[in-house]
């Protein structure tokens, strides 16, 4: 599917989404409230069939936090990058995709653990690596009090 086709396809599902050609893969930016619907459609629709979630990354950009989904279609052997962002730093919440790709259950817990983004609808939103009282180390304003990383 070419970029134009992808653009029209995604616009037909979700007009608010932006499709751009990234450095390596087509990238789709979608508002957080429409994420779940678009993700479901991307997986279920046979023309995209994005059934394999390679990687789910959270990143902090000071004024907003992004979650980046690398999707692959095992049918068409294409990769697509789906992005969404949240502006809140106090209580960032995004919809979960773990009912669509079950591997997201672990990946979302990791993002929650390291960045503090909660995923609405996740069945088991606990911290994964760190203890409850720890801060969110991958946030840029995280203070490394015991100086583990920064020297």
């Amino acid at each position: 599917m070419s970029l134009e086709d992808l653009n029209t396809f995604i616009q037909s599902i979700e007009p608010a989404a932006e499709v751009v050609q990234g450095k390596q893969f087509p990238e789709v930016m979608v508002p957080d409230d429409r994420l779940h619907q678009l993700a479901l459609e991307l997986k279920e629709n046979p023309s995209t069939a994005m059934d394999y979630l390679i990687c789910l990354t959270g990143a902090d950009f000071e004024d907003h936090m992004k979650v980046i989904y690398h999707l692959e279609s095992t049918v068409h052997n294409t990769v697509l990058v789906l992005k969404t962002k949240t502006l809140s730093r106090i209580n960032p919440v995004l919809p979960t995709v773990c009912d669509i790709w079950q591997t997201a259950e672990f990946h979302e817990r990791e993002v929650f653990d390291l960045l503090g983004i909660r995923f609405k609808g996740h069945p088991d939103m606990r911290r994964l690596f760190l203890s409850e009282e720890w801060g969110f180390p991958l946030r840029k304003d995280y203070v490394d009090e015991v100086r583990i990383v920064d020297r």
Binding site: I54, A59, T103
Partner: peptide, 14 residues
């Protein structure tokens, strides 16, 4: 920001 997609992590989730 650097992220490693480690295979063991996804495999463990299953």
């Amino acid at each position: 920001r650097l992220k490693f997609r480690s295979p063991g992590f996804s495999n463990l989730s299953a």
